[in-house]
Design a protein around this nucleic acid. Sequence first.
RNA 1: GGCGCGUUGGUCAAGGGGUUAAGACGCCUCCCUUUCACGGAGGAAUCACGGGUUCGAAUCCCGUACGUGCUACCA
Length: 535
Amino acid sequence: MLTLGPNFYFPALCFQAYLCRMFDKVRVRFAPSPTGGLHLGGVRTVLFNYLYAKKYGGDFIVRIEDTDQARLVAGAEKYIFDCLNWCGLVPDESALHGGPYAPYRQSERKDGYRKYAEQLVKNGHAYYAFDTPAELDAMREKLKSAGSNSLQYDHHVRMNMNNSLRLLPAETNTLLKSGTPYVIRIKVNPDEFVQFADMIRGEMEFDTNNVDDKVLLKADGMPTYHLAVVVDDYLMKISHAFRGEEWLPSAPVHILLWKCLFGLDEMPQWAHLPLILKPDGNGKLSKRDGDRLGFPVYAMDWIDPVTHDIAKGFKELGFLPEAFINLLAVLGWNDGTEQEIFSLDDLVDKFSIERVHKGGAKFDFEKAKWFNHEWIKKLDVEHYEKRVNEIFEEKGVSVTDARYLHQVMNLIKERCTLLTDFYTQGIFFFESPKSFDEAAVKPKWDEGKKEYFIGIICQFEELVTWEAVSIEELFKSSATQKNIKVGELQMILRVMLVGSKTGPALFIIAETIGKEETIKRIENALVVFNGAFNK
RNA sequence: GGCGCGUUGGUCAAGGGGUUAAGACGCCUCCCUUUCACGGAGGAAUCACGGGUUCGAAUCCCGUACGUGCUACCA
């Protein structure tokens, strides 16, 4: 079976690839550059890669693309792996986990790339370029003032530039020998069409007249993304390359490199994923949008090592990894049924790259929270009580009785949207209310009610079985005796025990916190109400 | 500006020539609960626009508009 499914989707287009790949293993890669926090969109790219690999029994590889030394951020790589780990998307091979194609960090593979760049030069598919940044600027300035609609370094301009195409071989040699800084650029021939089948978008075609001579090897000897991605995908036997839509315009460069270097038969199948857009206005979702609109865009808290700015993560905000994965999966994909709640296993089973949308989706934090709510309700509290315990600790409440926390969590789980809600919804099970919703009590408060509560204290003390039903029975019969409406008393009792008019069934609360604590809280509240209402 | 990609309710979306155009989130109304939540019942779309093709188009084709991406010795 292996790659049968996906290849059958474009049988005519991929027949050749199909033939040569049908017995190969599916191997996909996520290739982040460690420049900061792991964005929503990044996690979704990981997810889709992972799902596809696991669906076809393949390998999921994480390759660190750290070819831009200037943009490296300390800690970013570790952070990426921490996020993947939290999400449960563990790589089969990576810079962290090792594997048969190590190293998985491009900076450590530096020496390997030059050979391919040189080979391209030798075969006439690339050339040395000695242009300085200033000269490049000047070129673009010139094009701009000439009214050109392209500012690219391409076949129109390359014969006016300082490169081995225009220079005499001897001149090039001299420059090379004298150590003049240079880059290697791909030589894109005009008037050709580059075609490939995108698994999401179908047949794609690009006119090479619009493709520029991209830098392949930088002056510092590092490859650019364009060279590195092709070389490493080849060396690591990547069968399917899924990445964000922002890469679509440079896809023809990659196809051309594949063609010149390794042959199209070896090339992975491409899929360009739609973007995740900001919820309000326009554009790709960015960290700033999260700050602005009040929701996270990173998987986990990211602390900038330089500025020490902290960007909130879904994890710390109280999201379950199950929910995070789920909401990301259905942002741009669905299985065609009405199902919306999917576990990772479900997703592996049902995911299909062909059903991924072409259009970008605006991120909706309200819906994201709904997914979390659903997962909190769905999962047994064992799955997340450790995290909830941490949240209580962070708030300065130490939970000594794990069984009690467990019990409380089951009582309130359906009213918790975020894990952090367990604290706000459940704190009164651990501490007496520090304040009361007096406005809720005041209109109902009178001398009769006061007498009633004074009386109920003694009755509670004598109650033998402290269980919700018996407490309720006693409470109600006592009210009937005194000819007071039970409803009004209940509201008051609730505020006495909880502090506000919220929470699960009242007598369950009384049972859970215990007789002694219930009586204590009534007495406490009596004092406060007495003072407040001056009766 | 050039090139690419996209466009079904506020949002996510099903749908692939004939449907009363699913469903979910959010919002509103009501029921349940004398709390809040959960749950339940309702309410809200001339499928961006204009032309074709067709007996018939949200669905196919062409334009236009709008959105978005790329346009670095960044990924």
